[in-house]
Design a protein around this nucleic acid. Structure first.
Lengths: 330, 330
DNA sequence: TAAATAATAACAAACGTTTGCGATAAATTT
DNA sequence: AAATTTATCGCAAACGTTTGTTATTATTTA
C-alpha cells in the first residue's frame, strides 16, 4: 500500500494541493468548512507528511547527529538519554552513530550526517589529537557542532564538559577531611585531557593543603589493571588508608580487590571516586563520589546547541559543575 | 555557505545535471574523461548527495527506527550497539527513540518514524498488553517491524527474544547441581511475559527434578525492594542457602544485602542470576549467571530485519539461546 | 448599481535527485 | 558514399512539499 500524500487527498476532495496543504496547517486563507473536510479525510487515511519532501523544500531537517565512542557505556548512554529527551521536546529526532574510538568511523559518520543534512551535531572526539578539518568545514556550512566530554583544544568550537578540575579538587578536599596519611590515587588514560585535568588539580590541592600526606599516583587503563595495582600496593608494609578512583572502571577493579581481600570499608580503607553514581550505588557501603552526570552534560549540550542555532555562532566552553555525594565509604 | 548540488557542479563544468549525476555513479554512458573531471570538482567542492532528495526520488530511506524503553540501560544499550554496528555495515543509519515505558511516547515515536519513512523499525513494547493497531498499519504499509525483548503475543509479527524458558531451566539445573535445600527466587515484574516465561520454566523444572527443595517465589520491582526482601527472609530461622535473581536490578539489591550482612559467597549463600554479564563481573567472587546478551539479540534482530525486507514477509519468532557462565558464586 | 474590498481557492515554481528517452556526432559497417 | 551502429550527453518528468502570486467569487461600500 502506498503512502497518503497531499495530492491523493486533493484528488479525493476535488481540491488543489495547495489548499489541502494550507488547510492542514490552519492557514487563515482557508474556510473552516474546507479545513474540517480536509482534516477528516487526512485523519481517516492517516496522512503523515513526508519529512523528506519537507526538508527538501524547507532546507532544514529537524535532525541532530550524535557521535559517541560507544553507546553501550554508563556515561554516554545517559548523555544520549538527556539529549534525546530534550530533542523530542523540541521537535527534533536524533541520529546516533558510534565511532568505536576509531577516527575513520568518525569520519564516515560525519559523512552520513552531512548527507542527511542534520541541523547540528553533538560530537565526542574518538581520540584527543585529531584532524579537525571536517569540523571546520561543518562550521563553514553553518552546521553547529557542540563537542562534549572529549573536546578539542581549538577554541573556535563550542564545547561542554565536566568541570574536571573541580572534580579533582573536591576529591582532594574530602580526602584531606578524612585525615588520610597515605593514599593510593589511580588515574585513567594519561593521553586524555580529562585525566590530565583531574590529576593536576588533585595533585596541586593535595600538595598545598596537606603536604605531608603521601600519595601514590598510578595510571590504569582497565578495571583488571586497577585491581592488580590495588592488590600490589596493599601488600606493602605501610598500607594506604584511602584510595581514590578517577573512573568507574577503576573503581570496579578496586572494589573487586577489596572484596577479595575482605577489607573493611571505610574502617581499613576509605574509598572515593568520580562517577555518575550508578556504580558507587552497587556496593555496601555506598561509595562516596564526586558526581559527573552524563545526563546533566546532555542537557547542557542541548542548551548550547539551541543557543548556537539561534544566535548564529556563540563560541563557548561551558562546564557542568561537580558535587560531592556522600556515601558511606569515607 | 550553501551546499554543493548537482546543479552547481553542472554549471561549473558546462554539463547537464544528468550527466554529472551519471558520472558520479560511474554510469557506462559517460566517458572516462568526463567522469574524471566531474569527480575532481565534486571532490574539491566536497559534494555530498542530499539524502532527502534521494529518498524523495527513490522512495526508500536507508534509515531504521529503533524504539527502546530506555537508552540508558545495560541491556538495551548493547542491543542498540549491535544493531547500529550491523546497520552501518549495510549502509543504514539509525533513528533511536525512547518510550520511557510510556505508550503515548511510543505512539509519538512511531509517528516520527513514519514521517521519516524509515525502512523498518525495531520495537520493544513499552508495556505488555497494548494496542497494536499502529504496528498492523505499518505492516500494511510494508514497513517491516521486528519486535524484540518485550514482544506482543500476536503471531502475525516478527519477533526475536531471549530463550527465557531455557534461562529458567538452566538456572534451575545449576541450583539443583549445587544441592540446594532452601532457595530464595526473586522474579521481576509479573506483568511482563519475560517474568512469566522464566518463572514457569524454573518452577516446573525445580518441581520435577528436586521436589524436596524448598523454594520461596517472590517478585521485586526494584533493587531496593530486592534488598529488603533478601534481608527479611534471611532473618528467618531456617536460612536459605541459595538465591536466584531474575534480573540485574534484583541482583544488585541482593548483593547490597549480602555485603551489608557480611555473608560469605558461596559458602553461606550461593548466588545465581540472569544477566548480560556486566553486573555479575562487578563482584568478587564473580557471580555465576545465565547469559542473555543484548548484543546477540541485536545481531539476530538485524538478520531478521534484512530477511523480512528481502523475502517480503517472513513471519517468525526467533530466540537467542542462553548459556551458563560459571563465576565463583555457586 | 457600479466599484472596491474581502474571502477563498487554484496555479506554478522550487527544493535536489534519478532515469527513460531522445539527440547528436563519431565510428563502423555495407 | 550511404547506412547503420556506437559512444556521449541533454531534456524533462517525477518524487511530496511549501508559498508567492493570481484568479474567482461573494460581500461590502459609495
Amino acid at each position: 500500500m502506498t503512502n497518503t500524500t497531499l495530492k491523493l487527498l486533493a484528488q479525493q476532495l476535488q481540491l488543489s494541493i495547495s489548499t489541502v496543504s494550507r488547510a492542514l496547517k490552519d492557514h487563515p486563507d482557508i474556510s473552516a468548512k474546507t479545513k474540517a473536510k480536509v482534516n477528516a479525510l487526512a485523519q481517516s487515511m492517516d496522512y503523515e507528511p513526508n519529512a523528506y519532501a519537507i526538508q527538501l523544500r524547507m532546507q532544514s531537517s529537524k535532525i541532530f547527529g550524535v557521535i559517541v565512542p560507544a553507546i553501550s557505556n554508563l556515561f554516554y548512554d545517559s548523555f544520549i538519554a538527556a539529549v534525546e529527551e530534550e530533542s523530542r521536546r523540541n521537535g527534533y529526532a536524533l541520529m546516533i552513530l558510534q565511532s568505536s574510538h576509531n577516527p575513520e568511523n568518525e569520519l564516515n559518520n560525519l559523512k552520513i550526517f552531512r548527507q542527511n543534512r542534520v541541523s547540528g551535531v553533538f560530537a565526542c572526539l574518538s581520540t584527543s589529537a585529531e584532524n579537525l578539518d571536517v569540523y571546520h568545514k561543518m562550521n563553514e556550512r553553518e552546521i553547529p557542532v557542540v563537542f562534549f566530554d572529549i573536546v578539542p583544544k581549538d577554541n573556535t568550537f563550542t564545547k561542554v564538559r565536566m568541570a574536571d578540575e573541580r572534580c579533582g579538587v573536591i576529591a582532594a578536599e574530602n580526602i584531606i577531611k578524612r585525615n588520610a596519611k597515605k593514599v593510593l590515587a589511580i588515574f585513567g588514560d594519561p593521553g586524555l585531557s580529562i585525566s590530565q585535568n583531574r590529576k593536576i588539580s588533585f595533585q596541586n590541592f593535595m600538595h598545598n593543603f596537606s603536604p605531608k600526606t603521601h600519595v601514590n599516583y598510578i595510571n590504569a587503563n582497565s578495571s583488571n589493571e586497577a585491581e592488580e595495582i590495588f592488590k600490589k600496593h596493599y601488600s606493602k608494609a605501610v598500607k594506604f588508608d584511602t584510595v581514590f578512583c578517577m573512573t568507574d572502571e577503576i573503581l570496579i577493579g578496586v572494589m573487586k580487590a577489596i572484596q577479595a581481600l575482605q577489607i573493611k570499608v571505610p574502617a581499613e580503607v576509605g574509598v572515593i571516586s568520580i562517577s555518575n553514581g550508578f556504580i558507587p550505588n552497587l556496593y555496601h557501603p555506598v561509595i562516596s563520589y564526586v558526581e559527573t552526570s552524563g545526563f546533566q552534560l546532555g542537557k547542557l549540550a542541548f542548551v548550547q546547541m539551541m543557543a548556537n542555532m539561534q544566535t548564529g555562532k556563540t563560541v563557548n566552553e561551558l562546564t557542568v559543575d561537580a558535587t560531592f555525594i556522600e556515601g558511606g565509604s569515607m
